Simulated assay, not measured.
Amino acid sequence: MSPRNSAVEARRTKARIIERSVALASVDGLEGLTIGRLATDLGLSKAGVLGHFGTKEALQLATLERASTVFTALVWDPAADSEPGLRRLRAVCESWISYLEHARETFPGGCLFTTAAVEFDAHDGPVRRTLARLLLVWRRRLAGEVRLAVDAGELPADTDPEQIVHELTGIYLALNQALQLLRDPLAATRTRRALHRVLAS
């Protein structure tokens, strides 16, 4: 095999490991990722898995970054072409519901970020810092849309964007729990009702 083909194959293998890690972490958490489980699932040796990352922590960080990319593709990108402000914010909220309801192939255990936040909120270190950074980036993006809606007169002038984002975050944490733990068939309907109140123009 040529060096070029070897490099391509290495990238493919690393991508497979990360994709499987995202799925496993959504169910078992980032701490539940084990080199042995990944090796068995993917038909690789333990050394073959570890060689791509060096440490479990590096694998966890790569898993978070990949999950963030997938989340953006599933939640933000479908709404990206909507009119900025309230219309785009509502479109994002709808695709966020769809992500939690239907992205089972990628996230069989529900929102990986919700699982990871519970795992790492009382810890310190690179994984917690990366998780917090990714969540803050998302919150700032949402707050930006709220500000655009306020500037366009779509929301009251005294609207606090950070408060809206705080409430949206709570709504989606509740939706994830209702879907995953409670198997509530009305979870999405209840979420849309809550969104209607929070984003009333």
Score class of each variant (00 low, 15 high):
200 A>T: 13
5 N>P: 00
142 L>M: 15
25 A>G: 05
15 A>N: 08
34 T>F: 05
17 I>D: 04
191 T>L: 04
59 L>S: 03
21 S>K: 02
9 E>I: 06
56 K>G: 05
50 L>K: 10
83 E>L: 09
11 R>W: 06
138 W>H: 14
20 R>E: 15
144 G>M: 08
144 G>T: 05
68 S>I: 00
62 A>H: 05
195 L>M: 07
115 T>D: 02
129 R>S: 15
45 S>N: 02
163 Q>T: 13
100 L>C: 08
188 A>M: 03
43 G>Y: 09
54 G>R: 04
50 L>E: 07
9 E>G: 03
128 R>T: 11
167 E>V: 09
32 G>D: 08
69 T>S: 13
28 D>E: 11
73 A>S: 12
5 N>L: 13
14 K>M: 11
70 V>K: 00
153 G>K: 03
63 T>E: 05
35 I>M: 12
10 A>P: 03
45 S>V: 02
165 V>M: 04
101 E>N: 00
150 V>D: 10
172 Y>E: 03
14 K>H: 08
98 S>Q: 10
65 E>W: 03
51 G>Q: 11
80 A>W: 09
170 G>H: 04
38 L>G: 02
24 L>G: 00
160 D>Q: 07
179 L>M: 06
87 R>L: 14
28 D>Q: 10
146 V>R: 10
71 F>H: 09
147 R>K: 14
86 L>A: 09
42 L>E: 07
2 S>W: 07
10 A>N: 10
100 L>M: 15
37 R>W: 06
97 I>N: 06
128 R>Y: 11
39 A>C: 07
12 R>T: 07
128 R>W: 11
21 S>T: 01
135 L>R: 12
130 T>R: 15
155 L>W: 11
177 Q>Y: 13
50 L>T: 09
47 A>G: 15
35 I>K: 03
108 P>C: 02
101 E>R: 00
137 V>E: 14
183 R>H: 14
181 L>E: 12
120 F>W: 15
198 V>P: 01
18 I>S: 01
59 L>K: 02
178 A>N: 04
193 R>W: 13
46 K>C: 05
66 R>Q: 11
123 H>F: 14
67 A>S: 11
96 W>Q: 09
62 A>N: 07
20 R>P: 05
119 E>G: 10
135 L>F: 05
92 V>Q: 01
193 R>Y: 12
74 L>D: 04
27 V>G: 00
190 R>M: 13
174 A>Q: 14
91 A>E: 12
34 T>V: 07
73 A>D: 12
102 H>G: 12
1 M>E: 13
179 L>V: 04
4 R>K: 10
31 E>A: 09
94 E>R: 10
48 G>K: 08
189 T>G: 07
63 T>Q: 02
26 S>R: 01
186 L>D: 15
176 N>K: 01
28 D>S: 14
148 L>P: 00
187 A>F: 08
201 S>F: 08
91 A>I: 02
178 A>Y: 08
77 D>P: 00
163 Q>I: 10
188 A>F: 08
191 T>I: 08
149 A>L: 07
71 F>D: 00
